[in-house]
C-alpha cells in the first residue's frame, strides 16, 4: 500500500471523527429547531448545543462521594468508543483508515461498550435513579440486539461479508440491490433499531423532565460540568454516526475513495446533506409520536426483528 493512500485514509478517518464531533451537536440543534417549528415555537438557535457544551466545559467537575473511578471514566469511554466507531465506518469514504480492521459486527459491539459503561456509571452513583435508568437502558439494548444483528446478517448477504465498507461499496457498484425487498426490509428494521439505540422517541424522550419516565437521562442524572458535556457529545455523535451509516447503506452516493482531498471534501458535504435530511425526517416523525410505555417496547422491537428476519429470508430466496 503506498504512503499517499495511507495518508489519505488516515486523513479521511480524522475528518470523519472531527465531522462527527462538531456536526453532531449541530444536528441535535437542528432537530430541536425543526421540532420547535412544528410546535409553533421559535426555538433555540441551531448552534445552541455547541454553546451549551462550551458552558458545561467551563463548569466544575463533580463526583458523588460513593462513586468510583468508573463514574469519571465513563464519559471518556463513551466518546472514545464512538470516535473509534466513527473512524472505522465508511462515512465520507469507503476506505477509512481502520476500515479493514473491523466490520459492522465489531461496530455494534464498539458502540455497546459506551452504553454499557454508561449504565455502570449510572449504578455507580449509588442513587435510585441511576439504577433505574441503567436497568431500562440495558434492557432496551438487549431487546434491540437481535433485530440489529439479523439486519446486519441481511445486509451482509449482498456483499458476502459483514465488512461495512464492503457492503457500502457493493451498493455503490450495484445500486440495483437497493430496490430489492431485502434491502427495504432491512432498512425498516434498521430505522427502528437506530431510534432505539440512540434513545429517541418513541423509545425514550430525550427532553423529558419527569424522572420516572426517564431512561437515558435518569442514568446520567448525577453528571455535571465537563463530564455531562462529554456524555452529551458522545450521545449526539452516536446518533449522528448511526444516521450516517443508515444513509450510506440506503444511499451510498457521494461516498468516495480516500485518495484525494477533494474526494474527502465531497464526501463530507454529501454526508452532511444526507444526515441532515435524515435528522430532519426523524425530528418530524418525533413531533407526531408519543413515547411508548416501557413494556410495550418489546412489541416494537419484535416488529423490527421480524423485518430483519424477512430481510434474511428474502435474501435467501433471491439468492
Amino acid at each position: 500500500m503506498n504512503a499517499s493512500l495511507l495518508a489519505g485514509e488516515a486523513l479521511a478517518a480524522v475528518v470523519q471523527v472531527v465531522a462527527l464531533a462538531l456536526g453532531a451537536p449541530v444536528l441535535l440543534g437542528l432537530m430541536r429547531k425543526v421540532r420547535a417549528h412544528f410546535e409553533g415555537r421559535v426555538g433555540q438557535p441551531v448552534v445552541q448545543p455547541l454553546r451549551d457544551l462550551r458552558k458545561l466545559f467551563r463548569k466544575e467537575r463533580m463526583r458523588p462521594d460513593q462513586a468510583t473511578w468508573i463514574f469519571p471514566a465513563a464519559p471518556v469511554v463513551l466518546v472514545a468508543t464512538v470516535a473509534v466507531a466513527g473512524a472505522i465506518s465508511p462515512l465520507v469514504t469507503t476506505r477509512p483508515a481502520l476500515g479493514g480492521s473491523a466490520d459492522l459486527f465489531a461496530l455494534v459491539y464498539l458502540l455497546l461498550i459506551g452504553s454499557t459503561v454508561l449504565a455502570l456509571a449510572g449504578m455507580d452513583s449509588g442513587t435510585a435513579f441511576g439504577g433505574m435508568g441503567a436497568s431500562r437502558a440495558v434492557t432496551i439494548g438487549a431487546l434491540a440486539e437481535p433485530a440489529l444483528l439479523v439486519t446486519i446478517l441481511a445486509l451482509s448477504f449482498g456483499a458476502h461479508s459483514s465488512n461495512l465498507p464492503a457492503i457500502v461499496q457493493a451498493t455503490v457498484l450495484h445500486p440495483e440491490i437497493l430496490a430489492t425487498p431485502q434491502r427495504l426490509f432491512s432498512l425498516g428494521a434498521l430505522v427502528v433499531v437506530v431510534v432505539a439505540e440512540s434513545g429517541r422517541l418513541p423509545v425514550d424522550n430525550p427532553a423529558t423532565h419527569l424522572e420516572l419516565t426517564m431512561i437515558h437521562e435518569a442514568m446520567i442524572l448525577e453528571y455535571a460540568g465537563p463530564d455531562l458535556a462529554l456524555v452529551t457529545v458522545g450521545e449526539a455523535m452516536r446518533l449522528a454516526l448511526l444516521l450516517g451509516i443508515l444513509v450510506n447503506v440506503v444511499a451510498p452516493w457521494g461516498v468516495g475513495a480516500a485518495d484525494s482531498l477533494p474526494a474527502i471534501a465531497l464526501g463530507v458535504v454529501a454526508l452532511a446533506v444526507k444526515v441532515t435530511a435524515a435528522g430532519v425526517a426523524l425530528a418530524v416523525f418525533e413531533v407526531f409520536t408519543a413515547k411508548m410505555r416501557l413494556f410495550r417496547l418489546p412489541e416494537l422491537l419484535a416488529g423490527a426483528f421480524m423485518l430483519g428476519v424477512l430481510a434474511v429470508v428474502s435474501g435467501l430466496v433471491v439468492r
Binding site: M123, A134, T139, G141, P146, V150, F305
Partner: peptide, 29 residues
C-alpha cells in the same frame, strides 16, 4: 437466521446480567 437472532438476544441479555452483577455487586453503596 434464527440462531443469529438467538445469539444476538443472548449477547444483549448477557450485558444485562453483567451490568447487574458488576453494578449491584461492586458499585454504588
Amino acid at each position: 437466521p434464527l440462531a443469529v437472532s438467538a445469539m444476538a438476544l443472548t449477547a444483549g441479555l448477557t450485558v444485562v446480567a453483567f451490568v447487574k452483577a458488576a453494578g449491584v455487586g461492586f458499585l454504588g453503596r
